[in-house]
Amino acid sequence: MIIQILSNFCDEGYLEKERYNFTSPFFAGANVAFRRGVFEQLGLYDERCATGEDHDICLRAAGAGWDLYFQPKALVRHNNKGKLRRFIRRWFYYGFKHPYVYKKHTPKALQVYLVNRGARQGYLYSCVLNIKKSPLHLVIFITPFLTMHIFLILTIVTALLGLNITTWMFGSVTVLAGLAYLKSDVDLKHPLQSIVFAGLRYTANMALLVGGLLGSLRLGMLYISGTLDYKG
């Protein structure tokens, strides 16, 4: 997952080998080091990865039995001089190109992942459904962002059909999911900044989701991406 690098790495140490899979954390290409033997054994970066080459090589290294070690004291600061248009384009592009890495490492299956809030060391998602012989290659990361939109659509549909009680029920779930989604943006001391942050995060998430959908359709699968979460 793209977002794994952005979240929840906490303590120095080994990434858990027995839990290592596609949704495990990986190290961003901006600050990572390899033992020469890794490249000698596995070959180089996959040049078909327009982005996510860092994720791919971490997955390959872990798969070959190498240990991955998080060393927070080895600190690098990033200078992100962002323009809004570039910001949106970047998240769309991450979404658009990432399904390639997913498909490369995951056999055809129907997989559902849930956000695991109490996760440590970046293990943010748990696989709750994995149907291996699915005719459809489909992966869904269920997040407050996605829940909010699904129930919003259901609310609109039921309202159009005139189903009043159901509309209220779906509408309530939409509001609750929306509040859960916005929770991390709210800072009562800075109300204006909270609104801007919420807007930016919403925009990035939407760009990621749409990018993932379009990128995965090109590869004959459906990838409903996870979201950009507060690192808290």
């Binding site: 690098i5 790495f9 990986f26 190290f27 961003a28 901006a30 600050n31 990572v32 080091a33 390899f34 033992r35 033997g37 890794v38 090589i57 971490c58 290294a61 070959a64 039995g65 190498w66 240990d67 991955l68 070690y69 998080f70 060393q71 927070p72 004291k73 080895a74 600190l75 690098v76 600061r77 990033h78 200078n79 992100n80 001089k81 962002g82 323009k83 809004l84 910001f87 900044q193 801007v196 942050f197 930016l200 995060r201």
Partner: peptide
């Protein structure tokens, strides 16, 4: 057996635009 070491990433302090704060 350590093949890959990742360090921490943070953002440069000087960024003060709203996007940088984000």
């Amino acid at each position: 057996n350590v093949g890959v070491v990742g360090g921490d990433l943070s953002y440069l302090e000087k960024g003060e635009s709203i996007l940088e704060k984000f």
